[in-house]
Each structure stands twice: as C-alpha cells, then as structure tokens.
Amino acid sequence: MKKIAIVTGANTGLGLETTKAFVKESMEVVMACRDLSKAEEAKTEILKEYPNAQLRILQLDLASLDSVRDFAKAFKAQYEQLAILVNNAGLMIPPYGTTEDGFELQFGINYLGHFLLTGLLLEQLKKSVNGARIVSLSSLAHQWGDIYFEDLQFEKKYDKQKAYGQSKLACLMFAYELDRRLKAHQLSIKSVAAHPGLSRTNLFRHLTGVMKLLTPFVYPFTQSAKSGAQPQIKAALDKSLSGGEYLGPSGFQEYSGKPKVVGSSSISKDKKKAERLWKVSEELCGYNYL
C-alpha cells in the first residue's frame, strides 16, 4: 500500500524540499498550504522534476482552528491512513498580530495549529500499517526563552524574538511529550523533532533592526533550504530512530551540516512544564487527546 504523507507549508522552503524527498521515495504527498495558487505553482515545479509524483493540494490555514478542522475532515474523507505528518509550516518574528482565534501569531501558527492538527489526525496515524511518524519542526531559537504561561499571547508586552522562541520551544516540548504519551499508550507511532540550523528560507522576510544588519555576517554560516530540510527528512524516514529524538545539522553551532541527533535546552526536557503546556493547549484548542 502506498504511503501517504502530509507536509504543512509544502509550497516553499523546507516544506517544498521535504515534499520532493518524499515523492522521490514514491509516497503520495498531501500538500497542506494556505495559498492555493502558490501551492499549484510548487506542484508544477515538482512535477517537472518528478513527472510521476503523486501530489494532492488541500487548503490549510494554521491561523484558523476552523481551517485546521476543515482540513482534517477533508483528509479523513479521502484517506483511511496516514504514514507521516510533518508539522513544518511556520512564521518568524513578524510584527504583532493575532490569529482568527485570538492567539499571538507565532504561537498560534507554529504551535497550536499543529497541536490540534496532530490530534485530529491521530486515528489515521494509528491505522498506518508499519507504524507512523510525526515530525515537529523546532529551531535553535527554542533556547531563547521559556513558556510564558502568565502571558502566553504576549498581550502585556510584545517581544517578537521571545514570542518566536516560545513557539519553537513549545513545538519541541510537544514533540517530546507526544512521544512519551504515544509510548505510554503503546502505539506504534513515533514523534521526532528537527531543526534546520540557519537555512535560507522566506522565514527571514520579517527581519528588522539589528537582526537585519547582522544578516550579511551570518550569511556565510547559513545553508540552502535543501540542506536545511535534511534533519526533518531524516526524522521522517530514518528507520533507526526510536522516537523522542531531536535532529539538527552537525556543523559549527548546529548552523549547517549533515543531519544528526542533537541536544536541546533543559527547559525543553521539563516534563512538568510539558504536561502543563499540553493541558493549556487542549483548553485553547478545545480538543483533548492521549
């Protein structure tokens, strides 16, 4: 039976490269994208390189929990099982804004939308014949801060870097906690996290001030989107992984290089904080699982 994979944000950057890697492995890929016209352009690009690629586009706007629910419903109507879910789409240090549901943009898009999506697709993941895999995309920025439970949505004072760090820390803590819960329920689904190092993607479009000025100095340490996607591709495909790992580049400061299992901050491994985050996430999304 053909493996089915979902890649969020599949039309650009890391998501596009991950989609190409899965197509190369003869998987059918559901491209979960907000902008359907850009998704069609990406599909055309992939088909030029891989004429036999099996691709399907389904709309997903992670800034709307209703859109996440609609996507899951549409997927379930067409597919009985899911082998790989890559929670890839993201937003980095934008001006302050909120999602349709009132969440700070980065926390809502990078983390909460994916938290709900994973839960809604759990039954399809359970049905995967040889065990499924969930890959959550984190970042070196997970080390920038904490989970600010007293002001999760940064309503008191917005710090875009702290907010981004929180969202990516949440993604990593979720990946670890999800794996613990999957194992506790004795499910043959593995949860693995990955980060792309410093990759040249359109995530950097919102850079301003000092960070923008530093870009030319950082550039020599960056890598292409294709190279940056390798950790999440390995996280999705490497049979030797047992679940609960975090993968990133192997080079200097994990900025670039071949993918390997890497370490993470002490906060990311705080089980009590992860349990609290899970509970709060269920409340915010209005959906409980595991």
Rank of each mutant, 00 (worst) to 15 (best):
Y289H: 12
G13V: 11
F22Y: 10
E123M: 08
D179F: 01
V7Y: 01
Q81Y: 13
Q166I: 12
M27V: 14
S191P: 04
K269H: 07
R276S: 04
D101H: 08
I147N: 04
Q253C: 13
N52L: 11
E104C: 07
S128F: 08
S250I: 01
D70C: 08
G113D: 05
G97V: 00
M173K: 05
Q81I: 09
K260G: 01
G263P: 04
G15M: 06
K234A: 14
K73Y: 01
K76D: 12
Q143I: 15
F71D: 09
L140F: 03
L178E: 11
N202Q: 08
M92S: 02
E283C: 03
Q106S: 03
A63V: 03
E275T: 03
L112G: 01
G244D: 00
S37C: 10
C285H: 10
V210P: 15
D35K: 12
E245V: 04
E40D: 15
S67R: 09
Y246I: 13
Q166E: 11
K2D: 15
C171D: 14
R69A: 15
F107A: 02
I57Q: 01
I4K: 13
D151M: 14
K157P: 15
L120I: 04
S242Q: 14
I6K: 03
S227K: 13
L62I: 01
A21F: 06
N202C: 01
S191H: 09
E100N: 14
K239L: 06
N130Y: 05
G9Q: 04
A5K: 01
N52G: 15
S227Q: 07
I189H: 00
N288M: 09
S138C: 03
T208C: 05
F221G: 01
S240V: 11
G263S: 10
E25M: 10
S268P: 07
Y79V: 07
R180L: 12
K239E: 11
L290F: 12
R34D: 03
E45P: 12
P94A: 00
T12Q: 09
A42V: 05
L182G: 10
K127Y: 00
L207R: 04
L16M: 07
E25D: 14
Y50V: 13
A53C: 15
P51W: 12
L187P: 05
S67L: 03
R69H: 13
K160F: 14
L290A: 08
Q78L: 04
S64F: 07
L85M: 04
H142E: 06
L105V: 14
G9T: 06
